[in-house]
Each structure stands twice: as structure tokens, then as C-alpha cells.
Amino acid sequence: MNLDSIHPSPQCPTCGMEVLPGSDICENCGMDLQDLDLEPDRPTSTLHASILYDQISKLEPPPPVTVASNQSIESVVKKMNARRHGAVCVVDGSGRLLGIFTERDALKRVAAQKINISVTPISEVMTREPLVMQSQEKLGAILNKMSDSGFRHVPILEGENLVGITSVRGVLNYIAEKGLF
């Protein structure tokens, strides 16, 4: 019999790594876990539980629209409009995330400045090292990050791999489905 199916491994609240039940600290990030083993206190609302325990992967973040860093702003904007995405991920040859370019960047760094969009590469106006999250982090964590940082789009990674992009609207859609309709 597989014991895992009865007692799924708990996860570290900080980094999301699986930890052995009863561990005092998380082996991955060193978080102190000693105070966590207490009486059950299940949240009553599905929405509440969902925010606390659902992983970001539950949002089923759509695969991002990706572009190369040397593509012109014009071609990137065309792609964003055609695909109706508010953000694109700029990646290198091996698919590694270099930056993000959003409607907000378009407004601040393109429309409000006078630059030639048919020759300027996207790398000059993208946001480098954007906020990213891991797909096994919790919904509550992304809500909090979005609220704090003001970023509307967050690329989602699995390890080093870019697997999706989540938007404020994606999160809101999930909340609506889970808690309201």
C-alpha cells in the first residue's frame, strides 16, 4: 500500500518544497517548522481554503507569448495585439526568461517617448529580471505579490523553465469560479 496516498508529504510554507512529516526545519530553505504541528483548524469557505492551499498551477496559467530580445518593438506589439495578451516574455535561444514587456511598458517607454519602433529592439524597453513565481507556490502568495508590487503579469516557472504567465484577471477569474458562481 502506498502510504503517500494517505498522508501526502507536507510542504514548507516558505519555499513550497516537500518536507518530511515532523521535520523541525525545512531542508531546502531552513524555515523553522517546529510550531506548525498543531490541532486541525480547517477553513470553512472553499475560496478561503483555495487561497491558502491551492498552488499557482491550479490557475492553469496559459503559456506565455514569447519573443526574442532582438525583435523590433513593432513586431512585438503586433504579436501582443493579435494574440490579445497584455504582456510578452522575452526569452533567449534556449527559452530562458530575460525580461517581460507589458502594456504599461509600451505606454511609459514607447508611447510617451519618441522612439522608432520599427528598428528599436524589444530588449531596450523591456523590464529586466521581472518578478517571477514558482508554479508550486500558493495562490495566497501570488495575490500578495501582485498587490504589493503592482505587477499585473507574473511569469510562472517550474525550476528554471518558463511554463506560463498569470495575470490579475487570471487570478480574479479563478476566485470568481471558486467562490462566487
Binding site: P10, C12, P13, L33, L36, R42, Y53, G140, A141
Partner: peptide, 9 residues
């Protein structure tokens, strides 16, 4: 975020 449904801070 606590790690398990049956745990709390």
C-alpha cells in the same frame, strides 16, 4: 502559509 490543511500557525 501553513504547509498542510490540518496545520495552523
Amino acid at each position: 502559509l501553513p504547509p498542510r490543511l490540518d496545520q495552523k500557525m
